[in-house]
């Protein structure tokens, strides 16, 4: 297969994946909307019957899974088209990041009852892919010399996977804050009755962060080792490095706050959001507008 046709095929798969995530988004929306419609005024809200929405929910998860497979194929063909790992510019980082994010969701789905998260997750994946293919798209090309290293595979994959899980934890923390506000004012709205308890949300986002914090630390250290090989120093306060450090310290503070100072719930959720936004800032702002040596966005 010629490089060019592989690149075109990759694009087709990305578009197809977007179509499926759109379907998944609507199915999730229908699931949520129906659970709002179900009760007659007389029915006690706590005893809702969700059997009607169950099938749509399952369908939504199937769409999510198919979307994931298509996206995975798209990413792989992107790599084939350039005969390398598909992590050479920001378009490629974005599609792989979206892949990691939805993989994190699917993994979580196997273990926890988080199907309801499909709504924000499918939306976030759609937005990421949409931005990627319209604003960030670059033709498939060989790597610049600085990226030619095994550390690319190690460092970038660790960073992207951590990022996906951090963002999932952020979605959960944000949901926590929204539902917390409702509960403060009285009761949850009907559409959210099926969501887990606040405590479960709180624990889930903590577990996710605790799970990938070592991986993120590893990504930072692998970056430092690579920087030593490529740039002659393992740490130089380049903007990208600085923000990786800020993210690391923010998550470390979050873990400390939970375990040693005993922060739970609202305060912990805000701290989690802060830490996650430093990650996003690093990804978006520093890649697009930043200076420094990590200028591989191709923009």
């Amino acid at each position: 297969m010629s490089n060019n046709s592989a690149a075109l095929l990759s694009n087709d798969f990305i578009y197809a994946a977007m179509a499926l995530y759109t379907l998944a988004f609507f199915a999730h929306a229908v699931e949520v909307a129906w659970s709002v419609k179900t009760p007659a005024a007389s029915v006690k809200k706590t005893k809702l019957d969700f059997s009607r929405t169950e099938r749509v929910g399952r369908l939504a998860s199937a769409f999510m899974f198919l979307g994931f497979l298509l996206l995975l194929t798209g990413v792989i063909f992107r790599g084939i088209s350039a005969s390398r790992v598909p992590w050479g510019n920001m378009y490629e980082f974005s599609i792989t990041g979206a892949l990691a994010f939805s993989a994190a969701y699917l993994f979580g789905l196997k273990k926890y009852k988080i199907r309801w998260l499909g709504l924000p997750v499918s939306l976030a994946v759609l937005l990421t892919l949409g931005t990627a293919i319209t604003l960030l798209y670059r033709p498939s090309a060989p790597l610049v010399p600085a990226l030619k290293s095994t550390w690319l595979v190690i460092h970038v994959s660790a960073a992207i996977i951590s990022g996906g899980v951090f963002l999932l934890a952020n979605c959960i923390a944000a949901t926590y804050l929204v539902l917390d506000r409702y509960e403060q004012k009285g009761a949850r709205p009907t559409w959210a009755l099926k969501f887990p308890t606040l405590e479960a949300l709180d624990n889930l986002s903590y577990r996710l962060v605790a799970l990938v914090f070592p991986l993120w630390s590893f990504a930072v250290i692998a970056g430092a080792i690579w920087a030593e090989a490529a740039w002659g120093r393992y740490w130089g306060w380049d903007p990208k490095e600085t923000w990786a450090f800020i993210t690391w310290v923010a998550y470390a503070a979050y873990l400390h706050a939970r375990v040693t100072v005993g922060w739970r719930g609202r305060k912990a959720a805000w701290l989690c959001l802060f830490a996650g936004s430093t990650f996003l800032f690093n990804y978006i702002y520093i890649n697009v507008w930043g200076t420094g040596r990590h200028t591989y966005s191709g923009l």
Partner: peptide
């Protein structure tokens, strides 16, 4: 532990200006 936590957060905030203003050592 509380002091450590505050110092930790201060460190992350104090690192920010270095990425917003050009630094002599780099540029």
């Amino acid at each position: 532990m509380r002091t450590a936590l505050i110092l930790l957060l201060m460190l992350s905030i104090a690192a920010i200006p270095g990425s917003l203003f050009p630094q002599r050592t780099q540029n």
